[in-house]
Design a binder for these strands. Sequence first.
DNA 1: GCTGAAATAATAAGCCG
DNA 2: CGGCTTATTATTTCAGC
Lengths: 158, 158
Amino acid sequence: MKRLRNENVDLDVADLKILRLLEKDARTSTAELARAVGLSAPSVAERIRKLQENGVIEAYTVRINPAALGLKLSAWLRIRPVPGQLAVVAGIIRELPEIAQCDRVTGEDCFIALAHVGSVAELERVIDKIIPYAMTNTAIIQSSPIEPRSPLGGLRER
Amino acid sequence: MKRLRNENVDLDVADLKILRLLEKDARTSTAELARAVGLSAPSVAERIRKLQENGVIEAYTVRINPAALGLKLSAWLRIRPVPGQLAVVAGIIRELPEIAQCDRVTGEDCFIALAHVGSVAELERVIDKIIPYAMTNTAIIQSSPIEPRSPLGGLRER
DNA sequence: GCTGAAATAATAAGCCG
DNA sequence: CGGCTTATTATTTCAGC
């Protein structure tokens, strides 16, 4: 059977199919997953348990539409702390609830952060918290060519 | 009772609490949610149904750790199509399974995209698909000061 | 990994403020 | 209309193989 091997995990095609179905709808019942992969419900439940245990499945969550709640403005902020202030900036980012996502990256921008706000005024308040310690560059999201989708897309069988 | 009003939705504190609990764990039972907000299970189920209906809850999904599956390299790509090629680039992005997220943004970069790959060679292949039609800037993710978190953070009561 | 039973949880119906 | 209780159905979990 086709497999994906890594130091941590060794998935077969049934595991992959389960993951893909759960990504599409995390509430799919084990009975339905079982039907899809040709196993029994308890076997599927046990596989899911192991996928959680080894860290493949990090969390079950709901995707929320910020715009439906009045957060109609979303922006990507590239953030370049002034020398010596990187940790301070990281701390500020953690304290800003408007920032939903943030990664430390290579290159001249040290952080790239996603903010959801209700207005330009609120965006300004976010930027103003950061700007004493960093140069920032703000790009307003206009649309999305793709919906957030699976990181499994990058998988190649080896 | 405290409320959040928008043209689409009118949430009370119970709805918000339900959303926050579901974000933390989408498999929390309605009985447990009911206990948390002081309502009965059927009432909670009905509120969840409406949150889906009006588009606040977009999807139930699992968060997957790409690194656990061997996709140990993630990168943000800023993409600036050459004049006239924006739609072509958008099409290429849609066809690249390694790209898990992408937004069209204001500013000199038209797109900002997240790719998960297994190696630098795979990253190069992704970039090579785009580069005939756009200028790109790639920033490798080193770490994340925050875990992906709720867009609800930006909410202010009005 | 399977089957079958027991425990839990989700859903539907009917009723009340 | 939104919520509650009870009854029914579905799902998850556990035991033994």
